[in-house]
Design a protein around this nucleic acid. Structure first.
Lengths: 196, 196, 196, 196
DNA sequence: GATGAATGAGTGTTCATTCAT
DNA sequence: TATGAATGAACACTCATTCAT
């Protein structure tokens, strides 16, 4: 990569970085492209040199972040087989980027179809990992024979709920931290095999 | 109330009614006040005679609707003590106004603090009813000794999740209908006392 | 019409008037709506209260002007049967609004289909009048038995040519005035019955 | 010319060639310089290395094309003395590049003074040839003693009119072909000596 | 000589809110 | 009380031209 390309890449990253910051602070939908450009320290028009339109910027931003996140999850699943450890670490990962995920949870339902579908597809891949581990647990009679898909909807739905209303649940600090133990407890309760 | 006041009240209701219809169809955030006025059959300026600004209209609209809803829930609780019947009927009530609740779930996280707090307070009242019934069940040793608050977060969070992403979960028809049994099943599984 | 409506009508006319002035001076295509608004002494947004978009303003402007023009032609035809008098007066009418017709000739080929069709339809109505008079002349053996449609294309085409390149043909003053006699002469030459 | 100069000349020609293609397809006024560069397979900035600004490119493009065209006309005049044959062949030449001349007719009135003057000068040279031939015909008493200049304005004006509104006159195919015979007929009718 | 990233003024259009009628 | 015309800041996006590489 020559100096030119490096410079271009750097500008692109400045935009993404600024956009991410703003995304975390107040979401992208209600942020003007001119504000993003200003935060990135570039001219307004430059933004459209790197992204054909606002939506593309949002897609790129979310795709990059979710890809990073997805990789971490994959790693996590490989290293651990214990579902409650996985869940704990999964929540840790979310907590590490809680601002980001909180904004995402808030804005997701308002995105255009294509973008929403793309993000939900990413989520479904993560869900797959959980599904697999739980399925194994059921086969080994560690967990009760529950409907995995709907159980996961409960889990993801609840996490999403906390995140989307983060500012209502905590004044500052992390919602995930506040509710981590409850989430894990209840999720494990659902999985647990009724002893008898 | 004299004739003038009656007329004023009537106009106010026309606005609310029109706003509700639009709220259900496509949400309020992306609807211009001029469109609401037009749907109500009044002049654009008239809207601001009844409501100082757009936010106040939304607050009023949601307050009225949620109060009605709350009353129905209260009635339902009085008539029934069985938690799974209550939940089933609660979901029926939501389904009956699913467009409304879906829009609410989508927009709620984006409302300004005051409005969001108001709505969440309404929700907390409803939650109280559930809380009470579950508490009784635990005292009577029908249910396991779980943390009621977090269990309810699971329930409300999940319902909210389905509603906010309604269009991603079903192409047409009701999300609640589609997932009602799963929601009830899992919720009851959490409550169930481990038999031993 | 109450004061409100009069005021609105007045603003609308201010816009049309300003737009017409600008249209004559430099054409509408390369004029920003903000400039039109400024020239009309109104806020930029106000323009879009009276016209849903720029095109509609142009359509209205041209339609009104061409309707006025068309009425004058109709009157002229009624009062006169002599084709060279009609042509002379027709050219006088164009000359009276030469700035307008010059801009129109310049911009017409660049308008969107709908608008172009609309204007050409107006022109075809005017052409009809000429057609009728010439047809009568031919029947009465005053004129040669020529193809009327193509003869009129020659006439209108030539007038259009002079108008569209007005600034190249005259530095100031009227192109129509400069070439009036030539236009009439040649047109009459085409019509003339070859004596023999 | 050394290697570098040859290369430069080659790039310049690539730009002209691409610009001509685009000019024919949709005109230059509404085409971005970046699109022209892309079509030429060069960098956007390179275009401004060969032409100081967009206008210069247009001037060069039209000048080259019209010079070629002018040469063909000159040749044609040398080989033929018959005015209706010349006219027929002139129309054939236009038809062979109808896209080009149609765009030119549409855009010409909107060009800046300098460019317009340049193009009209080119046209006047072509006109000269016609003038000469007609003048000879008049001296030889083949044609009527008409005003040659204004007769030619009629001819060129009409052709220009058809070309500039080409898309309104024909949906596809050639306008010139459609109206060739009419143009020739009427033009010859003007020239014809009144027999008596 | 060629590149292409960057610029920034400019475009048509929207909309919550105000205020004279 | 009701009206609806007017406001003007805001928006996403375009483009001829510049200049460091």
């Amino acid at each position: 990569m020559n100096k030119r390309q490096i410079q271009k890449q750097f500008t692109r990253e400045k935009i993404i970085r600024a956009a991410k910051q703003i995304f975390i602070e107040k979401g992208i939908i209600n942020t003007a492209t001119s504000q993003i450009a200003e935060a990135a320290g570039i001219a307004h028009g430059t933004l459209f040199l790197h992204f054909p339109n606002k939506d593309s910027l949002v897609i790129e931003l979310l795709d990059v972040e979710l890809a990073k996140f997805s990789d971490k999850i994959k790693q996590l699943i490989i290293e651990t087989t214990d579902i409650d450890t996985i869940l704990k670490q999964y929540l840790d990962l979310i907590q590490a980027e809680e601002g980001f995920f909180s904004s995402l949870a808030r804005e997701l339902p308002n995105y255009k179809n294509e973008l929403r579908r793309k993000i939900l597809f990413r989520e479904s891949l993560i869900r797959e990992h959980f599904h697999q581990v739980i399925e194994n647990g059921i086969e080994q009679k560690i967990y009760a024979d529950i409907d995995i898909a709907s159980t996961l909807n409960f889990l993801f739905g609840t996490i999403n709920y906390y995140l989307s209303l983060k500012t209502s649940f905590v004044q500052q600090g992390s919602v995930i931290e506040k509710f981590r133990d409850q989430i894990i407890d209840i999720f494990m309760k659902i999985l647990e095999k009724t002893k008898g």
